[in-house]
Design a protein around this nucleic acid. Structure first.
Lengths: 213, 213
DNA sequence: GCTTTTCATTGACCTGGGTTAAGAAATCGC
DNA sequence: GCGATTTCTTAACCCAGGTCAATGAAAAGC
C-alpha cells in the first residue's frame, strides 16, 4: 500500500493546506518508520493528491482498481450491493489507508468505495510506489509491517463481529469509535452492524431507556 | 509464518511417512516459490514436527503463543470462549498454515487452537525461521506474498459472512468445502456459521425438503 | 425561503433463530 | 459387543430483528 507516493502535477493549490495535509501523511508513516526532513521532502514532492465531492465513487464493482488510497481529509465507506441491497463493510477516515482487494489481487472488484463527505485523498499506484521506493529504499521495510497490522485488525474485526450480538456491536462501536456515530448516517451504521435502520432505532431506544432509569 | 522450518530431534520415525509429509510442505511452498532439491533437503533437515492426539490444545486464551503451525495431517479449529460459549472462527486442514495473532503481535492470545483429529504438525518459531532464512535467503520474498494472500482471504471471509444469511452460509460451505461437512461435527459447523446446532438441524431439514420436492 | 428528497422513528405484524427439554443416533471406551 | 457418552434431531414456545407502512425531522436543491 505504498501509495502516499507518486508524482503530481497538482501542486498549484494553497501552500498552507498542502503542508497541513503532508503532516497527516507523516503522522501515519511515523507509526512504521522515522523519516529525515530530506525524505519527507521527497515524499511531499512525489505524492499525488486529488479531491472528490461527496458521493463520488472511487471504485465500482467490476473495476480493475489500479489505485489505492490514503485519506487526508474526509470519510469513505466500502460496500457490496447484494440483490440491490447495500452491505457496508467499513468506514475509513483521516490517516487511514485503503488497499482494495482488487489492487492486491489484480482482479475485478466485488465492492464499491464511495465518499461520504468531500474528500482529499492521496492516490497510489504500482508505478508510483516503485518510483518512490527507488528514491527511499528503506521504505520497503514498511510493507510487511503494514500488511501484518492490516491482517491483525481485519481478523479482530471478523472476530468481534462473530462474538457480539447486534446490540453489543452497537455498544462496542459507541465505545471504540464514538466519532463515527456523529459523522455517519444511521442507515449506514445499521448496515455496518448487520441490521436494518429500524432495528438500530429500536436498539438505541432500548439502550436509552436502560441507561436513563 | 515461515514456520515449516526449524531444527528437529524427532527424526526417528518411519522414513516413508516423513517423506510423504515433506511433500505436503513442498506442495504448499510451491504456490510461492520454486525450490531446488538442495533447498528441499535443507528444509527437510531443519523442520520440526510433532504429533498431537485429538483434543490437544495447541494454544489457550492468555498464552503468549510463540509458535506457529503448518498442518501435515489432521484438522485443527480455532475458537473463542465468550461467557462459556464456544465461538468457532476457523477450521484448518492439511496444507494450511496457522499464524496466531498472538504470534504476530507478541501479546496474549484471545482464542484457542485445538485438534479435532489426531494431527501431525510442523511447528515454527521466530528462531527457526531466522535459521532457515539464513540458509535460504530468497525464502524472504515469500513473507509478503503469504501475508497478502492471508489478508485477501481473511477479508473475503468477513465479507461473505456479512453478505449471507445463516442458511446461505451453510449452502456456501456445502459448495466451497463439502469435505469439511463430512469431517467436522455439526455443532462446531453451526458455531462457525454463527448459529446453534438446533438451527442448523432445521436449516438442513428445510433444504432437504426443498431439494427433494 | 420554500419545496423536495432523504433520513429517522414508530407501530403492527411476521419470521428465523434461540431456548429448553426430550429422545434417537452415532461414537467411544473398555 | 455393550453400556456410556457425545452428537443430532424434533417439538413447543420465546424474542430480536425483519417487513411494511405511516409520520416526523432534517438536509439538499433551486
Amino acid at each position: 500500500m505504498l501509495h502516499l507516493l507518486g508524482s503530481t502535477k497538482h501542486a498549484e493549490k494553497r501552500k498552507s493546506t498542502l503542508v497541513k495535509m503532508d503532516e497527516v501523511i507523516f503522522d501515519f508513516l511515523s507509526k512504521y518508520i522515522e523519516l529525515t526532513q530530506e525524505e519527507k521532502d521527497i515524499i511531499s514532492d512525489l505524492k499525488f493528491i486529488r479531491s472528490y465531492k461527496k458521493g463520488s465513487v472511487l471504485l465500482s464493482e467490476g473495476d480493475l482498481g489500479k489505485e489505492c488510497f490514503f485519506i487526508l481529509k474526509g470519510c469513505i465507506y466500502s460496500y457490496y450491493l447484494v440483490e440491490g441491497e447495500l452491505k457496508v463493510t467499513e468506514f475509513f477516515t483521516e490517516k487511514q489507508a485503503i488497499t482494495p482487494v482488487s489492487y492486491t489481487l489484480k482482479k475485478p472488484s466485488e465492492y464499491y468505495l464511495e465518499c461520504l463527505e468531500d474528500c482529499i485523498v492521496s492516490i497510489g499506484s504500482q508505478e508510483r510506489s516503485a518510483e518512490i521506493m527507488k528514491k527511499i529504499p528503506r521504505l520497503a521495510t514498511l510493507g510487511p509491517n503494514f500488511l501484518e497490522d492490516e491482517l491483525a485488525s481485519q481478523r479482530m474485526k471478523y472476530d468481534t463481529f462473530i462474538k457480539l450480538s447486534p446490540e453489543q456491536r452497537y455498544q462496542n462501536l459507541q465505545e471504540q469509535s464514538p466519532e463515527l456515530l456523529n459523522r455517519i448516517p444511521q442507515y449506514l451504521i445499521a448496515s455496518y452492524l448487520g441490521i436494518k435502520p429500524e432495528s438500530l432505532s429500536r436498539i438505541r431506544k432500548r439502550l436509552l431507556k436502560a441507561s436513563g432509569s
